[in-house]
Structure formats: C-alpha cells, structure tokens
Amino acid sequence: MAINAPDGAPDDLRNAHTTGGLSDAELQEYTAAFADTTTAKPWELVVTSKTMKRLAWISVVVVMAVHIFMGAVVGVDFTGAAVTSIDKLAFPGIGLVISFFLYLGLTRARVRANEDGVEIRNFIGTRFYPWVVIYGMSFPKGSRVARLELPDFEYVPMWAYQSRDGQDVVQAVEAFRELENKYMPED
C-alpha cells in the first residue's frame, strides 16, 4: 500500500513491516496518524448484517406507531392547553426524524476488505486498518459481534458480523479468513 507517509516512515508500509522497518509502536503511531486513510483498490469483501437491518425496520415501525398514536390522541380531551393541528402533526414529524436517524445508525455497520487492509464502519466513524497492523479476527464464545485484533491486546468490534445472522455470518467469517490468509503478513 503506497501512501504519503509521515516524516521518516517508508512509503510502502507492507514492505517496511516485512523487512523489520517499523516496530509495533511505530506501526500503531502510523495507523493512528492515518486513521482516515483508505484504498483506491476494489473491495473483495463487503459484509453487512441482516439482523441489524431487521432491527432497524422494527424500531422504525415501533417509533412511528407510537408517534402517530400520540399525534392522534393529543387533542382528544380538553386539558386546559390549546392543541392545534400543528401540534397534532408535530408528533408524527418528530417520529419521522427519530426514525430516520435510528435507521441510519442501525444499518450503518459494514466491513470491507481488500489486499491493502480492512475498513470497519460502526455506528460512529469509519476506520481503515492495513493488514500489517492486524493480528486477526476473533469471535469469542458468547459474544454477539466479531472483533478485529490489533497490537497490544486492543481490538475493534465489527458490528457487521452479528452472531444472530446464523449461516450468513459463518460464510462471511470464512471469506474474511481467506483474505486474512492471502494478505496478512506471516509475523
């Protein structure tokens, strides 16, 4: 992966690691400095969660049902406050706004991988990790989501890999393992 490296660091991160050019601490610093770095090469693997999409739609239906109900019954009985038609429409309007952000947040999780590395997009933020700083992927027993293992016992949750996705997640893990075996350095 050739990118503009910080001062003193080699431009080709993959070769620098395999030749012993950067220590683990330098690799972490390098990755932190280029957190928004990504790749121009096509993605070989793209994973999203069907469970998260289903949860998002259920949440949207519940939120909208509650807000439509509240909009319908807000003016049923006189409580001393004047309720206008704008007030009645405000409840479903607020429900639409909440539903929109709820759907976006729950369907945002995605993992993409290619020969340069892995891009993880969770609820907030997207981060790209080159293969040289990745120690592997794990799916701990009893865990709902997989995680990407990094140096110094750090990890990043991969919300696109949901245990509730069943056979789909098994196939996605196998596809990720193939890319891991193909591109991850043998250190």
Score class of each variant (00 low, 15 high):
residue 42 P to E: 08
residue 116 D to E: 07
residue 143 S to P: 08
residue 152 D to Y: 14
residue 62 V to E: 00
residue 176 F to R: 01
residue 180 E to I: 06
residue 140 P to L: 04
residue 147 R to Y: 00
residue 48 T to F: 01
residue 73 V to M: 07
residue 174 E to F: 12
residue 92 P to L: 02
residue 98 I to K: 06
residue 160 A to S: 07
residue 77 D to Y: 12
residue 47 V to Q: 00
residue 172 A to G: 02
residue 39 T to Q: 05
residue 72 A to N: 12
residue 62 V to L: 12
residue 66 V to A: 10
residue 5 A to W: 07
residue 101 F to S: 13
residue 120 I to M: 07
residue 126 T to N: 03
residue 157 P to V: 08
residue 142 G to A: 03
residue 20 G to Y: 09
residue 52 M to D: 05
residue 181 N to E: 13
residue 116 D to H: 01
residue 129 Y to G: 02
residue 61 V to F: 08
residue 61 V to T: 10
residue 27 L to C: 09
residue 127 R to D: 02
residue 5 A to V: 04
residue 10 P to V: 08
residue 118 V to T: 00
residue 183 Y to C: 05
residue 17 H to S: 14
residue 176 F to W: 08
residue 134 I to W: 01
residue 44 E to G: 07
residue 127 R to P: 01
residue 39 T to V: 05
residue 25 A to W: 11
residue 53 K to F: 14
residue 136 G to T: 03
residue 166 G to Y: 01
residue 102 L to V: 15
residue 44 E to N: 08
residue 158 M to W: 02
residue 176 F to E: 03
residue 89 L to G: 13
residue 93 G to N: 06
residue 66 V to F: 06
residue 152 D to P: 03
residue 185 P to C: 02
residue 77 D to I: 13
residue 18 T to S: 13
residue 187 D to R: 15
residue 123 F to Q: 11
residue 51 T to Y: 10
residue 2 A to L: 15
residue 167 Q to E: 06
residue 118 V to Y: 01
residue 98 I to P: 00
residue 171 Q to W: 11
residue 79 T to A: 09
residue 165 D to G: 03
residue 3 I to V: 12
residue 115 E to M: 10
residue 168 D to I: 11
residue 126 T to M: 04
residue 91 F to Y: 14
residue 88 K to I: 07
residue 176 F to A: 06
residue 26 E to G: 05
residue 48 T to S: 05
residue 1 M to L: 12
residue 43 W to F: 07
residue 180 E to Q: 10
residue 168 D to V: 10
residue 79 T to R: 15
residue 118 V to H: 01
residue 87 D to Y: 09
residue 148 L to N: 03
residue 125 G to C: 06
residue 83 V to C: 05
residue 109 A to S: 06
residue 143 S to E: 10
residue 25 A to V: 10
residue 29 E to I: 08
residue 21 G to M: 07
residue 50 K to D: 08
residue 119 E to S: 15
residue 132 V to D: 08
residue 76 V to K: 11
residue 179 L to C: 05
residue 60 V to F: 09
residue 127 R to G: 03
residue 165 D to K: 05
residue 182 K to Y: 00
residue 154 E to M: 13
residue 156 V to N: 08
